[in-house]
Computed example of a mutant assay.
Amino acid sequence: YHKEYVPFSWRGFWAFGTGALGDMGCHLIDPAFKTVGLGYPSEVECSQVALFEKMWTPDYFPESCPAASSVILKFPGKDGKPDVKMHWMDGGIIPERPEELGADEQFGDNGGGGVLIIGTKGKIMCGTYGSDPKLLPTSRTKEVNVPQTLARVPEGHYVQWVNACLAGYGRNEVSSPFEYAGPLTETILMGNLALRTWNIKVEKTVNGRVQRSFPGRKKLMWDAANMKITNFDEANQFVKREYRKGW
């Protein structure tokens, strides 16, 4: 126990949590992941904010999640369609405002979160949790009638999950089965793997001066079938952890 960890801040330390991406990624990535039909990513790259302890000297906090970050994931195209790129931004970083959105129209939701999907025929945006979807320009939303194809969950997903557990595996249909939740979760963790790899530091002394390099600041190639990074082996330490022995 430590007062700096509870009740909320534990999620900002890699030993206990998964940062902003792990906290909110499932809510914000889900709309695009489901509608586009994404699977496992094939590559990932990132950048993150630097915090400075003094002028020109960035501090180093590998134990904690970044205060702000940008992650780019690439997904192989399916059925002859092109590859898909997904951009994640947090900590106040937002994408460029779409030209189709009016100057006084709100970009994202009231909490500062949101999703922008850019397709070959247009753009659509929504808030966190997929709320309030709109076509761009927003005037198109009233012009297009989208049929309801996804089943609703009137009892709520908590009750749906409990009922599925009571019924037994495979007997009840759920809105987020393991076949869907697995690749979605792996996508989020791939982003965090890149963020942790970003902070791998190598130091060596040359002529009495310490020189630092960060070899993990590169695009990482992911072999989903074998669950490993293929072009930077040091990153694979974050794929699985060594668990401590039980009491």
Rank of each mutant, 00 (worst) to 15 (best):
Glu105Thr: 07
Glu99His: 03
Tyr40Met: 15
Met24Trp: 11
Ala15Phe: 05
Lys121Leu: 04
Tyr5Lys: 15
Tyr129Met: 04
Asp59His: 09
Thr120Asp: 11
Pro31Leu: 05
Lys85Asn: 15
Leu38Glu: 07
Lys81Asn: 12
Asp90Glu: 09
Cys65Glu: 07
Leu51Arg: 12
Phe75Gly: 03
Gly127Ile: 00
Asp83Gln: 10
Ala32His: 03
Gly12Ala: 06
Pro76Thr: 07
Ala15Ser: 12
Phe52Arg: 01
Pro7Trp: 09
Lys81Leu: 12
Thr35Ala: 14
Pro66Arg: 04
Ile72Lys: 13
Glu100Leu: 12
Phe52Trp: 13
Leu116Phe: 04
Asp59Val: 01
Pro58Arg: 00
Gln48Arg: 08
Ala103Thr: 13
Cys126Asp: 00
Met125Gly: 01
Pro133Asn: 02
Met86Cys: 14
Val84His: 06
Lys34Trp: 08
Lys74Cys: 11
Asn110Glu: 10
Val71Leu: 00
Ile29Met: 15
Tyr129Glu: 01
Thr128Ile: 10
Arg11Met: 10
Glu100Cys: 05
Gly127Ala: 00
Tyr5Thr: 08
Ser9Val: 06
Glu105Gln: 15
Leu116Gln: 01
Pro31Ile: 05
Gln106Cys: 09
Val44Gln: 04
Val6Met: 13
Gly113Glu: 06
Gly12Thr: 05
Met55Ser: 09
Asp90Asn: 15
Glu105Tyr: 09
Gly102Ser: 06
Glu96Asn: 14
Leu101Tyr: 06
Ala20Asn: 14
Leu101Met: 04
Asp104Gln: 13
Arg97Val: 00
Glu100Gly: 03
Pro76Leu: 07
Phe33Arg: 08
Thr128Leu: 08
Gly122Lys: 00
Ala50Leu: 14
Val49Trp: 06
Phe8Tyr: 15
Pro66Trp: 05
Tyr40Lys: 11
Glu43Ala: 15
Asp132Gly: 01
Ser131His: 07
Val44Ala: 08
Lys78Trp: 02
Ala68His: 03
Cys46Ser: 14
Gly25Asn: 05
Tyr60Ala: 04
Gly92Val: 02
Cys26Val: 11
Ile29Glu: 07
Lys78Gln: 15
Asp83Ala: 14
Phe13Lys: 11
Phe107Tyr: 15
Glu96Arg: 14
Glu53Ile: 14
Ala67Gln: 10
Thr35His: 12
Cys126His: 00
Ile124Arg: 07
Ala15Trp: 06
Ser64Gly: 08
Gly17Tyr: 04
Lys74Leu: 08
Gly111Pro: 02
His87Glu: 12
Met24Asn: 12
Ile29His: 09
